[in-house]
Design a protein around this nucleic acid. Structure first.
Lengths: 130, 130
DNA sequence: TAACGCTGTGTAATAATATAACATATTTAA
DNA sequence: TTAAATATGTTATATTATTACACAGCGTTA
């Protein structure tokens, strides 16, 4: 069993908000939404986001500067993420594909680099937007 | 044979600079360097960068907001990029691995999404930094 | 228990990254 | 040779993210 992290007040407020959304949220839109809960400054948001990313509760969609909740209970550490992104409607989905994950996990380059993490983003058009 | 793009003055200046660096450059560091060549505003840099990304001459390292020249002559379109990033020294290398590329190219999710592009970033420690 | 390290908070200021809007010029293609 | 498309130059501004500082809470440990 993995140790269950105890979240602080700010971290909980922000995680709640992100978990309620099925799409990625941007830091300043989060800030706007949590102002009524007493979180007033960007840094308070970024600090919580960084922590939540670190413990794997959320992931950052790098190409969009946005944050999405991790739906995969096994994903306790944010070390291996795959997303699909629709370039038309911007819908983002986390992908869990065993075969793909294995290939990525097992990948070795020829430079002797030691990987501990990867992030993969697929871009295209979703069913609705094709 | 792929059509050879004709680059404009600004695009050439900026591509030259990026190609001379073996590491990713950031937009504002590029701006600083090209001021002596008459490029004065961020937008001039971003416009050239966007074009160069589009035609596959450079790639954006999303997690670093930085731009690196594409060393792969086949890579005429920026549609499939794989990088390794050292989290200690920030060294970035473009990876060309045939097997990996095939897996990524052939990947199908179960949502019927049509992909035209992906970006994969591996993070870890390079040989020197281990 | 007192001192310390660690993590988190709150606030203000500012840095770094990126785009909007507008007027004009140049190139491409019908 | 004109229209469409692409690029330029400039100013202003929007968006994303961090630095710096003062302090609070908590567990360890000496």
């Amino acid at each position: 069993m993995q140790k269950q992290e105890t979240l602080t007040k700010n971290q909980k407020i922000i995680l709640d908000l992100i978990e309620k959304s099925d799409q990625p949220l941007k830091a300043y839109s989060i800030l706007f939404d949590v102002k009524k809960k007493g979180i007033n400054a960007p840094l308070q948001v970024y600090r919580a986001l960084n922590k939540l990313v670190k413990i794997g509760k959320i992931h950052k969609i790098e190409s969009r500067n946005a944050f999405i909740a991790c739906k995969n209970s096994k994903c306790q550490i944010a070390k291996a993420t795959v997303f699909s992104i629709c370039e038309s409607c911007e819908d983002v989905t986390e992908i869990h594909d065993h075969t793909l994950s294995e290939h990525l996990r097992d990948f070795k380059d020829n430079k002797g680099m030691k990987y501990n993490k990867y992030n993969l983003e697929f871009f295209g058009l979703c069913k609705k937007c094709i």
